[in-house]
Amino acid sequence: MTATVNNSPNLVSSPPGTPILEARGISKAFGHVQALKNVDFELYPAEVVALIGDNGAGKSTLVKILSGVYRKDSGQILVEGQPVEFHGPVDAQRLGGISTVYQDLALVNVRDVASNIYLNIEPTRFGIFINFKKLYADAQEILHRLKIDLPSVKVNVGELSGGQRQAVAISRALARGRRIFLLDEPTAALGVEQQDKVNQLILDLKAHGSTVVVISHNLEHVFKVADRLIVFRRGRRVGTRLKSETTKEEIVGLITGAIKGDAVEAAT
């Protein structure tokens, strides 16, 4: 099946080589809601892929399956061509090198910035006592590298603005791995200036060899950072385009269904 797709005109939409992460025929239902229907997905080294689609199209669900939060109903996940099972987010991190920033951020509001970034991987003394000095220094360094200004790494996350919280969530992902980043609407809560920062960060990550998946409703941004665009509609993948070969009009058409999805993909 993969072979047919690769021989099809769709070939132009995929970089050559083995995907570092691949999903085949993923389906997921929540009760009567079929959130994903037989979805294929592939990621190549050092690319930025945008997942786009209307509300409820299934983007977050796919991200949560790839990051081990949800279990798929059927389908297969492969890392470097090898089939794997993710029994939880830690598996996805360890086996797939996947770090995720969730749409709802999932932060511990009552703890400070540094403790959130290093939650469960805190530097310790004697394996149990948190080494706060190192914790704060490390956190400072990560934020510095992201060029993020926070009042202090010791301030509780619950007291931060939306953009600052987003920064903490991204830093937490960054502290755990550098291979693949899944960013679910990373700019949704941000002001213009901080949106630009996140976009720059995505490009920086790519420049350092990371692969980034970014979900966004903002086509402006998507066209700024993405190499490939994958469009979802009602739980199906309806189109894949290289940025260099598509237009916003075409993408909008795919999102709304005004343009019929690619036969190869829509039929699966």
């Binding site: 990051s67 939060v69 939880g88 987010p89 830690v90 991190q93 995720t100 969730y102 709802d104 999932a106 932060l107 511990v108 509001n109 959130n116 939650l119 469960n120 991987i121 937490r172 755990r176």
Partner: peptide
């Protein structure tokens, strides 16, 4: 935040 706890293992 149960999700926060779970995603970090």
């Amino acid at each position: 935040n149960k999700l926060a706890a779970q995603i970090v293992g």
